[in-house]
Amino acid sequence: MDMLIVAFTTTAIALIVNIVIATYGIFTDRSLLKKVISLLIFSDTLSVFAILIGFRIPKVVSSPSPPIHLDIPGTVKDIEEFLTRTVDPIPQAFIITAIVINLAIFSFLAGLLLQYYKHFGSLDVHVLEEEEVVDEVY
């Protein structure tokens, strides 16, 4: 088998193992901070995985290039030449969207962690859950 295929498949499976380890961390760690860190590992691994899927080794030229025209295409030939070397732009666009979303979510979660520490004095999930005496309508 082609060495390149073996290398890429191994990398993909390694990324999957990383995802599963991160899932384990999210659902089993006691510390909420470590849960959030596992979540970060999860989403970053996912980004790499998507980029890996969009990657390609072109047939004609030796190395692929980013999906950006280096110069304004003057003729249809230029676009055809661009097609022979560019990688898939769609996973990259997906991932930039996902990164911004994760940024928003993680900054919100960080704020929540600060508030949690203020209220409970620790970041452990298993704080003593006492029934709050509350007015039910608020």
């Binding site: 899927i53 969009g54 080794i57 047939k59 898939d88 732009p89």
Partner: peptide, 29 residues
Amino acid sequence: IVSRGLGILPPKDLRELGRTIAVNCFNPW
């Protein structure tokens, strides 16, 4: 991955949708 569900990694060709966009992102024609 092993059963080539995502195609052969690394692929030699673009997916057709990605190709359509790569052709058309700057295409005065």
